[in-house]
Structures are given as C-alpha cells and as structure tokens.
C-alpha cells in the first residue's frame, strides 16, 4: 500500500489569523509547540481528533486545513 503524504495550510492560516503564533495555536488545541512545528513541517500526521481541533480553531473545514498529495500513477 502506498503511503499518502499529508500536507497542510496551517502556516498560511495562522498568518491570516493576525499572525497567530505556534505557541498560541498549541495552547488552543492542547499540544506542545514542538508538535505544531512538526505538523507544519509535515513531519507528523496528527490524529483525527487533533486535526479537527486545529480546523475548529481556524473555523475552516478539515479539507481546507489538511490535504493529501496522491502519488502519480
């Protein structure tokens, strides 16, 4: 099975929300700042619950925050 790579627009969404800091976002969703850094870099795919929490903070649907790049056939 091909591993899908999950990407996100968190950096842009933070910028659009008055340059919300990683620490502020981390506090709102209940994780450490290092986890937000890892998610933004694409080094960690969050759990479904955390992904929804992040989307709720930005008031956006999940698919506007996270997306996948399908491997070329």
């Amino acid at each position: 099975m091909v591993k899908l790579s999950v990407h996100n627009h968190i950096r842009k969404l933070r910028f659009d929300r008055d340059e919300m800091t990683q620490q502020q976002l981390a506090e709102k969703v209940g994780v450490t700042r290092q986890t937000i850094v890892a998610i933004e870099k694409g080094n960690y795919s969050p759990s479904l619950e955390l992904a929804f929490r992040i989307a709720l903070v930005f008031g956006s649907p999940l698919e506007e925050v996270f997306y996948i790049e399908l491997p070329e056939a």
Binding site: G30, V31, T32, R33, Q34, T35, A38, Y44, P46, S47, L50
Partner: peptide, 9 residues
Amino acid sequence: EPSFSDERD
C-alpha cells in the same frame, strides 16, 4: 520546557 506530553510524545 513543555509541562506535559501530548499525543505525539
């Protein structure tokens, strides 16, 4: 230092 462990930790 982080005061708790989150899901990734």
